[in-house]
């Protein structure tokens, strides 16, 4: 099993080389995995054990989900999770809507204004306005302190349009011709031919968009003044990095409150889980998608 990909001319590897390589692989993986192990362990640890060990744990002897219970009881964290999910879902849907429509609308060479509109979109790859003018625009439109400020200003990326447009242009022309012959209009063609065929690429772009919305913390910091409206990333920043732990959960008498460290680390775990859920799908397609992007972009 160890020599499946090994070319014949390389000869037999030395045992020392194999051992060293294996060690290096283990070390590299450990550098990434170890912090997660500490985080997960600390999040489910009991106060006694954390205090005895000085603030963290690598492997807990006793497991307690008290921190998670408190997080989902507490009004602020629970609300922030709902907000983050909402912004991610609506944002991804809106972004995909604009991106897919524009990608198809710009895909037919020679259609009216196609060259001009394409240039209009692509110029934004080269030059963007600074942070301040966009902020003032959002303010001018009365979008400050609304969730739209997190979604609309950054909804369209020329890069994503280019990726999906490139895919659509690879669809055989005969399919479009046949559909048109049968009397299908553009909307019908988009819905019944283009979308089913480009489901994979649209899904990948959507996943990347969703990860972006979920991870966004500067947008909310810039546009939302009301802490009640904060999404998870901002609450996590406040809890974990600034040590303002303010769960308002009702403390059940007779039960020991979970240690602050557990609550902090439980938040990190909760913010990571959605990423882990979509990660297999991302890995499946991402190297391909990234390469197309790198070559085209």
């Amino acid at each position: 099993m160890t020599s499946v990909n090994r070319p014949v001319w390389l000869g037999k590897p030395k045992p020392v080389a194999i051992a060293l390589k294996g060690l290096a692989l283990i070390l590299i993986s450990a550098v990434v995995i170890f912090p997660f192990l500490v985080v997960v362990s600390t999040s489910v640890a009991t106060k006694k054990e954390i205090d005895a060990n000085g603030g963290y744990l690598i492997w807990p002897a006793q497991i307690s989900f008290e921190a998670y219970r408190q997080i989902f009881d507490g009004t602020q964290v629970t609300r922030s999770i709902v907000i983050s999910v909402g912004v991610t879902v609506v944002g991804t849907a809106f972004s995909l809507f604009c991106t897919v429509l524009a990608a198809y609308g710009l895909s037919r060479k020679g259609s009216l204004f196609q060259r001009g509109l394409l240039t209009f979109v692509l110029i934004t790859l080269l030059f963007g306005p600074g942070m301040i003018p966009v902020y003032l625009m959002v303010k001018q439109l009365g979008m400050l302190n609304t969730y739209w400020a997190l979604i609309i200003p950054g909804a369209v990326s020329a890069f994503n349009i280019v990726i999906i447009r490139g895919f659509i242009q690879g669809i055989p022309q005969e399919l479009f011709d046949a559909a048109r012959m049968d009397g299908a209009g553009e909307w019908r063609i988009l819905w019944s031919i283009v979308l089913p065929l480009s489901r994979a690429v649209v899904a990948v772009v959507g996943l990347f968009l969703a990860v972006g919305y979920w991870n966004n913390y500067f947008g909310p910091l810039l546009y939302l003044n009301d802490t009640e409206m904060w999404p998870l990333q901002l609450v996590m920043r406040s809890f974990v990095l600034e040590n303002n732990i303010t769960t308002t959960a009702t403390h059940i008498p007779g039960q020991i409150a979970p240690p602050a460290q557990s609550i902090q680390m439980a938040l990190v775990v909760i913010a990571t889980i959605p990423i882990l859920c979509v990660y297999p799908f991302l890995t499946k397609h991402m190297s391909k998608g990234m390469l197309t992007g790198a070559i085209k972009g």
Partner: peptide, 19 residues
């Protein structure tokens, strides 16, 4: 096709070109 591109054009106008 123009209608399809319209949302993108509006977003880019408002949040890229006018700024």
């Amino acid at each position: 096709l123009l209608v399809m591109v319209a949302p993108t054009v509006i977003v880019l106008l408002l949040f890229t070109y006018i700024p």
